[in-house]
Simulated scan of single mutants.
Amino acid sequence: MIIPRFYLFILASVAFIGIWFLSYKPFLYQQLSVSQSTDGGRSLPLNHSLPPLEAAGNETLGFQKILILSTGPSWRTRGLLAAAHLTGLQITIPPQPPIDEAIVDAFGQLGGDDDDEEHPPHGATIAWLAHLDLIKHAIQLDLETVLIIEDDVDWDVSIRHQMVRIASAIRNLTHTEQRDQSSHPTPYGHDWDLLWIGHCGEFWNEDFETVSFEDRSACPKAQYSGWARNYLSHLPDHHRSIYWSFNPVCSFAYALSRKGMRNVLRVAGGGRGEAFDVKVMQACKAKALRCISVVPEVVHQYFPAASYGVNSLVDIGNGEAVGPDETEFESVMGSTDNILESARCNALWGKTCLR
C-alpha cells in the first residue's frame, strides 16, 4: 500500500515529539544533584498547617515549588537570587539540559512548509523547548502546583502580601469557596490550569468577569509601561484585577496546576506557532486551557541599563548582537517596568528602579 506523503510527515512529526519527550528524562535525573537552590534542593510539600489563603504568602507563594528557567549562572541569576533572599522566597534553578541544534531546527519546522503555517524563529524555538523541558521536570517531580519564573525578572518587595490578596480574588473568580471539597485545599483553589502572574501586557474590556481589589503596591496607571496601557486605563487605579485570560503575552512568570502541566504540554508540545507564550495565550483565549490573568502583573522583566545595549537570550538566538560582557554592566542599576518597589534593585542597590 502506498502511504501519501502528508501522512508520512504526520507520523514523522509524532515520532519526533515522542523521542524528544522520552529522551529528556535520563539526563534530568542525572543532573538534579547540581541544581542551584535557595531551599537546598528540597521538593517542598504542600503546607497544610496554614489556612489556605495565608499559605499564598509563604516561601513558595503557596505553590509546591518555584522553578527558575535559566541557562546557568549569570547576572540574571545573581540578581534573581538576591531578590529571592530579600523577600524570603525559596527558589530552585534546575540545570537546563542541552538542546541540540538539530532538535531546534526540527521543532521549529513542525507543521511543514505551508505558507500559512507560523514557525518560531531560532531564539524563540530554543526558549519554547526550554519551557517544555522545565514543565516536564515539574511533572517528573510529581508536583501538585509549580510556579515557573524566567531568570531575568523582578518583583515587588511585598510580593508575599500581594499573593495572599490575589489568591483570595482567584478563589472568588472561580467560586472555589462554594464548591472546593478537597481534603487539601490550596490557596488558589483547583479550578484552573495556568495563573499568568508575570507578563508584558493583557487585554481587558468591561464584558469580562473581573474581581478587583485595592492594592497600593499596584503600579499606577500613569506609570504603567507597555502596549496594554490603554486597556489598563479602563480599570480602577491602584487596584489589582483578576480575570479569565484573554490575550496575555510574555511568559515571565506563570503557575501551573497538576492538570495544567499536562494540558500545556498537550497544546504547546507540538510547536507550530510564533512562540511559546503566544501558543499558550491562544489556547487560553480558545478556552483549551483555563487561564487566569493578574493585572497589573506582579512579575516583570528587569532590563540592564539601556546605554549598554544588552539583548535578551531570545533576541541573541534570533541573530541580534551578543552585546557587552556582563562585567561591564552588572554593577550598574537598570530598571524594571511596572513594579513599584523592585526586589532586585533594592537587594543590589538599596533602591527601586521603576522605569
Rank of each mutant, 00 (worst) to 15 (best):
A218I: 08
A130T: 11
D151F: 04
R76E: 02
T87R: 00
S33E: 13
A56D: 06
T77S: 08
I68F: 03
Y308D: 02
A124D: 08
R266P: 07
A56N: 06
G273H: 10
R5N: 15
Q162F: 05
E59T: 14
R216W: 12
V295S: 00
M261T: 03
S342H: 04
L141I: 05
V146I: 12
V146F: 07
N247E: 10
L235T: 03
C219I: 13
P220G: 04
G201L: 01
D193Y: 03
A288L: 14
R240D: 01
T186C: 08
D151M: 09
F208I: 04
L61D: 01
L44F: 07
S225V: 10
I292K: 00
D151K: 02
D152S: 09
Y302I: 06
L80W: 02
Q90C: 10
S35T: 15
P120L: 07
R262C: 12
P324R: 09
H137I: 13
Q223A: 14
T71I: 15
R42F: 07
P51D: 12
K287T: 09
R240I: 07
V280T: 02
A286Q: 15
D115E: 14
I148F: 03
V249E: 08
T77I: 07
T352A: 11
Y308E: 01
D315V: 03
T352I: 06
H122G: 04
P236I: 04
F21T: 14
G41E: 06
C353K: 00
S217Q: 09
P185R: 05
I103W: 09
D113T: 14
L141K: 15
A268N: 07
I148P: 02
G201R: 00
P304Y: 06
A56L: 09
V157K: 07
K287R: 15
F208Y: 09
C250F: 05
V211I: 15
W155Q: 01
A306W: 11
Y243T: 00
P98F: 11
L265T: 05
L147N: 01
I99P: 01
